[in-house]
Amino acid sequence: MKTKPVAEPSTRTQQPIVTGTGVLGIKYNGGVMLACDTLGSYGSLARFRTVKRLEKVGDFTVVGASGDLSDFQKISSMLREMSTSDSAYDDGCNMTPRDIHQYLGRVMYNRRNKFDPLWNELVVAGFRDGKPFLGAVDLIGTMYEDDIIATSFGNYVCLPLMRKAGTNLSKEEAKQVMENCLRVLYYRNTKSSTKIQIATVSAEGVEIGEPFEISTYWGYSAFQHTEYHGKRL
């Protein structure tokens, strides 16, 4: 019997591979803060433990990403290239955080139009001319600005906590809020870890902290197995 080789239809990114989960962004008095953990998950496997998901762009902006990490590394290199050529003009003009947010929106939208999306939800944080900026872009090009932003699972778990905290915070208070949110996220999200990274942008510029561990407490009664198939343990 003769068999004919049949060409498989060509496919593009159909699903993310190594992924990062929620990125949190919040405005505080005099700046903006981004926070996320450093876990790169391969499906449900905790594959890479220290992947940095916050990227500095130019002098006033940080971009954080959840979703496919290889796509984010591609985006990072694009942004690096862009900020290099931006400073090469040497004309005293720089890309504003808003410029970068809008640019990323176009990139994401154009890729979705080709059915070849960059599988990320990006958060852009910046500080320029005395004003904080916080914006989000996703894989189909949805764009918005807000005082509080949380992506993927953080949108369900952390956003209510952040809204409760509000934006009238000092830098130290904002940091506490971020740590607490990521801790709560870790309790319920199987794809997050306790190794986190925090970036701040303010009039002093961009500061991306090194990854560090946050503590957890499992003594709450809700975390105790008190029953198994109806039998008290």
Binding site: A136, T142, Y144, E145, D146, N155, Y156, L159
Partner: peptide, 13 residues
């Protein structure tokens, strides 16, 4: 309002 599913992404878009 900017919604997605049961989430409100933003209140001022």
């Amino acid at each position: 309002r900017l919604s997605l599913g049961y989430s409100i992404l933003s209140r001022n878009t």
